Simulated scan of single mutants.
Amino acid sequence: MILDITERKKAEEAVQHKSIELANAYEATLEGWSNALELRERETAGHSKRVVELTLQICRMLGLPEHELTHIQRGALLHDIGKMGIPDNILLKPGPLSSDEWVIMRQHPLYAYQLLSRIPFLQPALDIPYAHHERWDGSGYPRGLKGEEIPLSARIFAVVDVWDALISDRPYRPAWAKNAAFNYLKENSGKLFDPQIVAAFEKIYQDQENSSSFK
């Protein structure tokens, strides 16, 4: 009987160890996808890491349950994975996109949905890749959701993503000053962005605006 219990414990420990190894492999794969997209898009170095960290900071400030944060973290990391389906001549264009090119670019949340919805462990992480371009007043894409129709994690991420994009250099424009980017978010609170999320972001901004690490 003692031998049987011992063997059972060893088997359980082996299964647990393999589960941890598998989870770590999943996370490493997701980070690899994100890094590959940044390399292809010539994105500002560290963009994905920054938006993930700030998104989780706001989530915790708003009291979201810890068990949801893993899925939110994955969604934030893969927020632009759908851009893998956008042609280089559009994705890497150094100037403004034409109206026809924007039609194609706006397909990337749909591409993300098509890709990630087929992977069971990523289905709970879909909200950000699929809905982070939706806007509070319904002017976003791809589904024209508005207000609280937009998943909360996507509303949080929308503020973070726009902030980081504005304060980073892009091939078609230089980075904005932080105060200008912050004012843009404030001016569009209740229009493009959920006022509750902008208010939470404002608290973080005010607490850390003098810190060189706030980017």
Rank of each mutant, 00 (worst) to 15 (best):
E187W: 05
D161T: 02
G140S: 07
Y111Q: 04
H17Y: 10
L77H: 03
T70M: 07
S189W: 04
R106C: 05
D169F: 01
L122M: 06
C59E: 05
L115N: 01
I5S: 12
S211M: 08
Q196G: 01
S153P: 09
L39N: 14
M1S: 15
S99M: 13
L39K: 15
F121N: 02
A158C: 09
D127P: 03
G32Y: 11
L30Y: 15
T70L: 09
I128D: 01
E202V: 01
P129E: 01
R170Q: 15
L64M: 08
I2W: 10
L37Y: 14
G63P: 04
A154Y: 03
K178N: 07
L110K: 15
E12P: 00
L92Q: 08
G82W: 10
I90M: 13
W102T: 09
W163Q: 01
K146A: 11
A165Y: 12
L122F: 02
K186M: 11
E43D: 14
E53M: 09
V51W: 07
S98C: 07
A199T: 02
L116H: 03
G46T: 09
E53W: 02
I20Q: 12
D194Q: 09
H108P: 10
S213G: 00
N89D: 12
Q206P: 00
Q73G: 08
L92D: 09
S189G: 07
F121M: 03
K186P: 06
N89W: 05
L152E: 10
T44M: 12
H67L: 06
H71P: 00
R42W: 14
H71T: 10
N183H: 15
H67S: 13
K146V: 05
R170H: 12
G95I: 01
L39Y: 12
I5V: 13
I81G: 03
S34G: 11
R135K: 04
H67C: 12
E43N: 15
H67R: 14
I197E: 08
A199L: 12
E31Q: 10
N188P: 05
Q114A: 07
C59H: 00
N24E: 14
V103A: 13
L30N: 09
K215E: 11
K203A: 10
L30G: 02
N188V: 06
M61W: 08
H47G: 05
A76C: 01
I167L: 01
P151W: 02
K9N: 15
I167P: 08
E134A: 01
E202Q: 14
R135T: 06
G82M: 10
A131G: 02
S19Y: 13
H79Q: 08
I119N: 03
F201V: 10
L116R: 11
A11T: 11
H133R: 03
I86N: 05
F214L: 14
W176K: 09
L64K: 00
S117K: 09
W176V: 04
R173V: 05
V51R: 06
N188C: 05
E43T: 15
R74F: 00
V160P: 04
F214N: 00
D161R: 08
F214G: 06
S212F: 04
H71W: 04
E209T: 02
A181I: 03
I104R: 03
